[in-house]
Amino acid sequence: MKFQIALAQIKPLLGDIKKNLEIHLDFIHRAADQGADLVVFPELSLTGYYLEDLAPDVALEPGRSAVLDTIKGVTDQRRIDVVCGFVEVAPDYRFFNSAGYLSGGEIVHIHRKVYLPTYGMFDEGRFLAAGDVIRAFDNRFGRMGLLICEDLWHPSTLYLMAHDDAQVLLAVSAGPGRGLRREEKFGSMYAWEAITRSAAQAYMLYVAYVNRTGTEDGVIFSGGSELINPFGQGLVKARELDEDLCIGEIDMLEIRRARTLYPLLRDERLDLTLRELKRIYRKRYQLD
């Protein structure tokens, strides 16, 4: 199985869902015209990032959202799957930083961001609820994992996705560029390259990393989206600091090849990990 994946490195407007939907439709059609089977948008692509008190105002109810219905419709018409980011309001009125996988006119999967950065320049935990599920899901191409930004900085999420049999990791972010000392590019971009490459290489899976661009109140989102193969090699990379749409190929046979050469997942001792985790858990919470 081979398919074409498009990295839609867009520049969303802060809190203007209508205009952001237009941007999405434009990129979806352009990606479909270029033969893409799946197009991935960044974190909070429909709303913008620094929402603060806007979060409840822009929140969508996945089952009853005209915006998501429009995108669902296009996935059906153009035979292209879409990953997009939005604020999700749950029936109990918690607001999540969510990303959805839409295909064939349906929402196939929603991931609620588990790790909300609330320190330094980030304040998500003040305005949003944290998800508590890390789970891979099936779609027409195979099995994938969907993670949002800070989730990837917690290696446990990658471990769980890999052992839940994800073959492709969809990693969406709103990553600000920062740190200009002794670097050829923003220091934060080196960190993303390290994390996405090591995830791909350690677990022999594809990583499709999609970061946003544009600015919000002086924060410069750095772009640099990239598709990485199961050997940890970059296949296509989007520009830095500007909008871009780039398309790469995912060949599921590459995963087989990587896992044949490096049977690390086969050799992983889940029982050992679990046993030690249980011990650490009991110690951490003083249960003995």
Binding site: R181, G218, L241
Partner: peptide
């Protein structure tokens, strides 16, 4: 102490920001 400061990148980022804002 600031010798590693990347002036070309700072310039690029600030040009993007000014245009955007």
């Amino acid at each position: 102490a600031f010798s590693g400061f990347n002036a070309p990148l700072a310039s690029r980022a600030l040009v993007v920001l000014i245009h955007d804002e």
